[in-house]
Computed example of a mutant assay.
Amino acid sequence: MPTGVAIRDVREQLFDAADRILLRDGPSALTSRALTAEAGCAKGVLHRHFDDFDDFLAQYVLDRVDQMAPQAAALRELAGTATVGGNLTDALSAVFQSVAVAIVALLTFRDELRARLRQKWPAGIPVLTEAAIMIGSYLRAEQDVGRIARGADPDTLAAVLIGSAHLLYADRTGASPETDAVRRLVDGILAPVTAGGRP
């Protein structure tokens, strides 16, 4: 690897390599050796930038959570446009067709990683919790424009949407669910709290 490469570039190179391994081979395949081979760098590079492999994994997960912020902002901007169901179908599909499902499996697979993340993320599973916050924020914005009933609880609805969508996408080895299946799930959950029962 050339000298003088910025630390952020090295981190992103390693994080992107972790994405590829998780999506292609699953959490059991994500080892330090596989990571550096996938990233095309020497093993020493990993240890120069991270305390150990679990430190790398913790920083990787938190980085992927941080990357959801622009998606959350864009979703909030959609309040009052198109349909609530369509907006949420697209948002849920984007979350679960990303590396999010594989990260949830990784967190389940590695006890030490969960313990490290608890220092900065005291409750919940980081990727799914952040996705639920994003969905809840959007639903509150839709409440403000009158497309979600005032008596609805956006945070509870968001948790139900995230949990239900995760069940659709949980089989990493199978085909992703069709958009229509995600839309039916969204519409079924939101029907009681939308005008006329139609999101």
Rank of each mutant, 00 (worst) to 15 (best):
P126Q: 11
I133T: 10
S137H: 14
N87C: 11
D111V: 11
L75C: 03
D55A: 13
D54L: 05
D111P: 14
A105K: 06
D55E: 10
R118G: 05
T31I: 04
R118V: 10
A58P: 03
K120A: 01
G146R: 05
V95C: 01
Y138L: 13
G146V: 04
S32N: 11
R147T: 12
A100T: 07
E112M: 04
A37K: 10
G86F: 09
L57I: 00
A102N: 06
L35D: 05
A115V: 08
T129P: 01
G44A: 14
F109M: 10
V104C: 06
T36W: 04
R76A: 13
M134Y: 10
D111L: 11
G85P: 09
A100N: 06
L78A: 15
H49D: 01
R147Y: 11
K43Y: 07
D66P: 04
V61W: 07
G146Y: 04
F96E: 01
R48C: 09
Y138V: 03
Q97H: 13
E77M: 07
R114N: 08
R118P: 04
P27L: 01
R64A: 04
S98G: 15
F50V: 00
G40F: 11
P70S: 10
R64K: 11
F96L: 01
F50I: 02
G26V: 00
A131G: 12
A72H: 12
Y60T: 07
L30R: 02
R118Q: 03
D63W: 15
Y60D: 10
V61A: 03
A105E: 13
A79E: 07
M68T: 11
L30F: 09
Y60K: 00
A100M: 05
E38Y: 09
Q97K: 07
E142Y: 05
K43P: 08
A123Q: 15
T81P: 01
G80V: 02
A115C: 02
P122F: 05
G136A: 11
V99P: 04
G136R: 11
G85C: 13
A29Q: 09
T81K: 14
R76Y: 09
A82S: 13
G124Y: 12
P70C: 11
V104M: 03
L88G: 01
E112A: 12
A141T: 01
L106Q: 07
E112L: 04
V61P: 03
S137V: 09
A72S: 12
E112V: 06
V101T: 10
V95I: 14
G40N: 02
D90G: 07
V101W: 00
L88N: 03
A105H: 13
Q97G: 14
M68G: 09
Q119V: 11
A34C: 13
V127Y: 00
R33V: 14
D51I: 05
R48P: 02
L92W: 06
A105T: 03
P126M: 08
L30I: 03
